[in-house]
C-alpha cells in the first residue's frame, strides 16, 4: 500500500514547511498565507478521510470547518481568551457538528451521499447567516487572537508555527489511524463496501466514525483559521468552500497522505497570486479544476504512480487502482448506484 510513508518525501515536506516563514516573504507573499495553506490542507485532509479512504463523496465539510471557526471565536470572545482551549473547543464543536448530521448521512452512498452533504452543509450556513445575536450574521464576528500562555500576544509568524505543530500532530494521528485496524476497515469499505459487509462489518457504523473523525479534522482547521484571520463569517460554510476543499484533495492526489497539502498549496497560492495579477482569476481557477479533472484525475502525487503519466481511461474500472481507493467501489458508468 502507498501508505508506507516515503521518508524522503516527508522530510522534504517538513523542511519546506519549517522554512516557509522565510520563503514566503522572499517570494513577496505574507506569512499568514502559509498558515492558510496548512489549515486548508488540514480541512482537505478531513475530506480525504471520507473521499480518499472511505470512498464517500463528501461535499459539505466546509460546514464542520465553519462550525469550528465560530466555536473557537465565540469561546475566545465570551470565556477564557486563551489559544489552546479555544482551538480545542473548535475541534470538538466541528466533531459534534458532524456527529449531529451523521445519522442522516450514513445510510446513503454515492451521489446521494454527496447531495445530502451539500444540503446539510447549507443548514449550518443558514444558521450562521441568520443567528445574528450569536454570529453577527453577514457582518461576521471579530475576534482578538488570544495569547498562547500568560498575556503574550501571538504574531503571524509565531501563529504559523503553532498551526504547523497542530497540523503535524494531526498528520501523525492520521497516519497512525489509517494503519490501525480501524483505518484498514475504512479502506476496506472504500475499496469494496459490499465485500466488507459480507465480512460482517457494520459499515454504517464505520462510516459514522469516519465522519466523526473528519469533523474533528475540519473543526480543528476551522478553529485555527478564525484564530489566524481573527474573524469568522458565514461564507466559510458555503458549499463553494466545500467544493474548494474537495478540489484541493483531487488536485494533490486522492487517498494520499500528502495530497491535500499539495493541493491546498497550489490552490491557495494560485488564487492569491492570480487574483493579484488579473481580475479574471476565478476563471483561471475554474479552468485549473477542469484541467485537473480531465488531464490528471489522480492529482499531482498520483501522476508518478503505476500507470505513469498516462491519463487513466477509467478509474472506476480499475478495481485495484491506487491511490484512489474509492475507484473500486464497483461503479458502473450509469444508473442507480445507491448502495443504501
Amino acid at each position: 500500500m502507498r501508505l508506507r510513508a516515503n521518508a524522503v518525501g516527508t522530510s522534504l515536506i517538513a523542511i519546506v514547511l519549517l522554512a516557509l516563514p522565510w520563503l514566503l516573504p522572499a517570494a513577496k507573499l505574507n506569512i499568514s498565507l502559509g498558515t492558510t495553506v496548512l489549515l486548508f490542507a488540514l480541512a482537505a485532509s478531513s475530506v480525504n478521510i471520507l473521499l480518499g479512504y472511505t470512498g464517500l463523496m463528501a461535499f459539505g465539510n466546509a460546514a464542520f470547518f465553519g462550525v469550528g471557526a465560530y466555536a473557537s471565536a465565540l469561546f475566545a470572545i465570551h470565556t477564557v481568551p486563551s489559544l489552546l482551549p479555544a482551538v480545542a473547543v473548535g475541534s470538538i464543536a466541528g466533531m459534534l457538528s458532524a456527529m449531529l448530521v451523521g445519522p442522516f448521512l450514513i445510510r446513503r452512498r454515492g451521489i446521494y451521499f454527496s447531495l445530502l452533504t451539500i444540503a446539510f452543509g447549507q443548514v449550518y450556513y443558514f444558521v450562521a447567516y441568520r443567528w445574528n445575536d450569536m454570529t453577527g450574521g453577514e457582518d461576521g464576528l471579530t475576534v482578538q487572537r488570544p495569547p498562547l500562555a500568560a498575556a503574550k500576544g501571538v504574531d503571524d509568524a509565531q501563529f504559523y508555527f503553532f498551526a504547523l505543530a497542530i497540523f503535524a500532530l494531526f498528520m501523525v494521528v492520521l497516519w497512525y489511524v489509517l494503519r490501525s485496524p480501524f483505518g484498514l476497515t475504512l479502506r476496506a469499505i472504500g475499496q469494496n463496501e459490499v465485500r466488507a459487509r459480507y465480512l460482517g462489518i457494520d459499515t454504517n457504523r464505520f462510516v459514522y466514525f469516519a465522519l466523526t473523525l473528519s469533523g474533528l479534522f475540519a473543526g480543528t482547521a476551522g478553529a485555527l483559521y478564525s484564530m489566524s484571520i481573527n474573524f469568522a463569517y458565514p461564507l466559510l460554510m458555503d458549499w463553494h468552500q466545500s467544493g474548494d476543499f474537495v478540489m484541493m484533495v483531487v488536485l494533490g492526489g486522492t487517498g494520499t497522505l500528502w495530497g491535500p497539502l499539495v493541493g491546498a498549496t497550489i490552490y491557495a497560492l494560485g488564487a492569491n497570486v492570480l487574483s493579484s495579477a488579473t481580475e479574471a482569476w476565478q476563471i483561471a481557477i475554474g479552468a485549473l479544476f477542469v484541467a485537473c479533472v480531465l488531464l490528471f484525475p489522480r492529482g499531482l502525487l498520483g501522476l508518478g504512480s503505476r500507470s505513469g503519466g498516462a491519463a487513466p481511461q477509467s478509474l472506476a474500472m480499475e478495481a485495484g487502482a491506487e491511490p484512489v481507493a474509492l475507484a473500486a467501489q464497483g461503479y458502473e458508468p450509469v444508473a442507480q448506484r445507491d448502495l443504501g
Partner: peptide
C-alpha cells in the same frame, strides 16, 4: 488588491499589502 468580496481573502490581502508591499 482584489479582496474577492470575502473577509478571509481580504485579511490575507491586507497582510500582504502591509507586510510585503
Amino acid at each position: 488588491e482584489d479582496n474577492a468580496n470575502n473577509p478571509g481573502t481580504a485579511v490575507e490581502k491586507a497582510r500582504k499589502l502591509i507586510q510585503v508591499d
